[in-house]
């Protein structure tokens, strides 16, 4: 898996976010070594689109989400959001830009201040940015709380611990919406929730996206969830992109061996379906010393010599379907036009 290359980037006036050659590295103590969390990925998201980012722990999907927010700033590469370069932005301009992109986190309870009333938590961004009069702020907050299914009166009296996990996630969503952002980065927003509540929150995100004209980046390790909510999915492994495709296409015809592994690992809720043997052994290697060539080669069933020495580039295998693999399960096609 390699995933350098930009064949999959689109030339469209509707591009809201465009990441090119994004690299994020963290130093390992004073050893001089570094964690290669994200190693040169390029992605774009169109207005109104939902991009799913999937992969195992440590593949760099959350780091990518945070690097877009410039939290922390990427080591190198460019992030263009609404036509502006974020990596060069400083001070007030950066703060202003962050109001246009918001984030929702995995653990809904710990991402809310435990000492404050829920309504205050949701109103805080408006207070900070001095948006509207007190009455306007109150109206806006109450409206959004209603929208996400939280009673504003109860929110005015209660603290986060008095709500369930699913409700806290709704509150986080309300907070992310009050500043009218154009992009919301959802980092594993439903991983900590029960399946029944997970379905409620996913439906809510779909409704809000339609209503507010939002663009979403949805980060998760559960492919079934990602498929449901995304228009386009990028599969990541050890800091690289393996495959990018429209959601349905990725699931019908995965081109990368790693994507197949992820799909086969999902437990099927049907005892009549024979349990396949463990789809893959082992765990991803350390991102401190990633394997040369394709980073997936040590675990790949189809790896050959070239995979251990040469990094594959993203190539088209179908309309909007790109894969970074020397031996993909679908034959690459010649790019006629982009």
């Amino acid at each position: 898996m390699a995933g350098t290359g930009k064949a999959h980037l689109r030339d469209s006036p509707d591009v809201l976010l465009r990441i090119e050659d994004l690299v994020v590295e963290f130093p390992v103590g004073r050893t001089g070594l570094k964690v290669n969390a994200v190693s040169g990925i390029s992605l774009d998201v169109l207005k109104g689109e939902t991009l799913g980012l999937v992969g195992e722990s440590g593949c760099g999907k959350s780091t990518t989400g945070r690097a877009i927010m410039q939290l922390p700033r990427p080591t190198s590469g460019s992030v263009q959001f609404e036509g502006k370069e974020l990596t060069a932005m400083q001070g007030d301009a950066m703060r202003e830009a962050r109001t246009r992109m918001q984030m929702i986190f995995q653990d809904p309870i710990s991402s809310l201040n435990p000492r404050r009333k829920v309504r205050q938590i949701v109103m805080e961004p408006l207070n900070i940015w001095k948006r509207g009069t007190d009455a306007e702020r109150a109206k806006k907050v109450d409206g959004i709380l209603e929208e996400v299914g939280i009673d504003p009166v109860r929110a005015g009296e209660s603290q986060p611990h008095q709500f369930s996990g699913g409700q806290c996630q709704r509150i986080s969503i309300a907070r992310s919406l009050v500043l009218d952002p154009s992009l919301i980065i959802c980092d594993e927003p439903v991983s900590a929730l029960d399946v029944s509540v997970q379905a409620q929150v996913l439906n809510l995100l779909e409704d809000l996206k339609a209503e507010y004209g939002l663009t979403l980046i949805f980060i998760a390790h559960d492919l079934a969830v990602v498929k449901n909510i995304s228009d386009r999915v990028a599969v990541m492994y050890l800091g690289k992109i393996c495959e990018v495709a429209p959601s349905d296409m990725l699931y019908e015809q995965p081109a990368h061996h790693y994507t197949s592994v992820l799909l086969n690992s999902i437990p099927v809720p049907d005892p009549e379906v024979a349990v396949t043997k463990t789809a893959i052994e082992g765990e991803p290697p350390s991102p401190v010393l990633p394997p040369p060539g394709c980073r997936f080669n040590p675990r790949c069933p189809a790896a050959q010599d070239i995979c251990r020495s040469e990094e594959p580039q993203l190539r088209a295998v179908g309309e909007g379907h790109f894969v970074a693999c020397h031996f993909p399960t679908i034959t690459p096609v010649e790019l006629t036009s982009r």
Binding site: Q198, A199, N203, A224, V225, K227, D231, D248, I266
Partner: peptide, 18 residues
């Protein structure tokens, strides 16, 4: 059972939440 997202469904299929 119905609230689990299914891989066979098209993307954006509405989930049956409880």
């Amino acid at each position: 059972l119905n609230s689990i997202p299914k891989l066979e469904d098209r993307s954006h299929t509405r989930l049956n939440a409880i």
